[in-house]
């Protein structure tokens, strides 16, 4: 009986969190036009979320591509069609690996930074101080950070994909000697602009979701050291789970 009550309580809390996040999203979106009046703040956040994530995104992209080259080559050469490596790897990167891995890295690198920064502002009463000075913290702090994440994520995704394809090329063509011309021409003949759009749309949606979760968790963090830590953890976990669920839905939608 206790177990059932606990389950119901958890369910109620889960639904309440979804509702609160949606309402919070409404408040942020309402401030977005005003946030654009101070583009400097947004640029700074694009820098924080995007430019500072560049090294990790590029390194991971290169190695994900290289592994794809190794595995893809090993698999395809069993069927004697290693020329299809370009196609297989490019489609995998553009449609799935690029957006999803970028979103996971983004949640780990930029999402946690956002959540802990805003959470710490809450814990040190900076947000309250702003409210007392009649500065809306959502407009001044949350909206620019949210927008920075939303703008940076699609760009990070395409960078990841481009570097990943370079990684595949390094392993497949340079290392294993797949014919360079057929690698590129098969890739070109079977990857359409639609596939690239699919990847970019996924990147945008994941960026939106991960940024929202990060700012929401930070903004509603319990104002203690422990609370900020918890908010950071929840950001990563929720972002990762939501990214994978959204990925399934988007793929089903666009297939």
């Amino acid at each position: 009986m206790n177990l059932l009550r606990e389950l119901l309580e958890n369910l109620r809390q889960f639904i309440a969190t979804i509702g609160a996040t949606t309402l919070f999203l409404g408040r942020v979106l309402a401030q977005v036009p005003r946030a654009f009046l101070r583009p400097g703040l947004i640029i700074e956040q694009v820098h924080n979320a995007g430019a500072l994530s560049l090294v990790i995104i590029m390194t991971c992209g290169l190695f994900v591509g290289a592994v794809l080259g190794l595995q893809g080559y090993d698999l395809l050469q069993r069927f004697g069609s290693e020329d299809a490596l370009g196609t297989a790897a490019a489609l995998a990167l553009v449609k799935e690996l690029g957006p999803v891995v970028t979103a996971l890295l983004f949640a780990g690198r930029a999402g946690t930074a956002l959540a802990s920064e805003i959470g710490l502002m809450r814990a040190t009463d900076q947000l309250t101080a702003m409210e007392m000075m009649a500065v809306d913290p959502i407009r001044r702090v949350v909206a620019p950070r949210f927008l920075g994440g939303v703008l940076a994520m699609p760009l990070l995704t395409v960078i990841f994909i481009a570097i990943g394809i370079f990684g595949v090329q390094v392993v497949g063509v340079q290392l294993f000697g797949v014919d360079s011309a057929s690698f590129w021409s098969q890739m070109r003949s079977s990857v359409g602009v639609d596939d690239v759009y699919e990847g970019i749309i996924k990147g945008c949606v994941f960026g939106f979701a991960c940024s929202l979760i990060a700012v929401y968790e930070g903004y509603t963090a319990t104002p203690t050291a422990e609370g900020v830590g918890r908010a950071t953890t929840r950001t990563v976990v929720t972002s990762a789970v939501l990214t994978l669920i959204l990925d399934y839905m988007l793929t089903a939608l666009m297939l």
């Binding site: 070109r188 990857v191 602009v193 690239v196």
Partner: peptide, 11 residues
């Protein structure tokens, strides 16, 4: 990167 993806790997 976007330019690369759209021009170099698509048909």
């Amino acid at each position: 990167s976007l330019f690369f993806l759209v021009t170099q790997i698509t048909n």
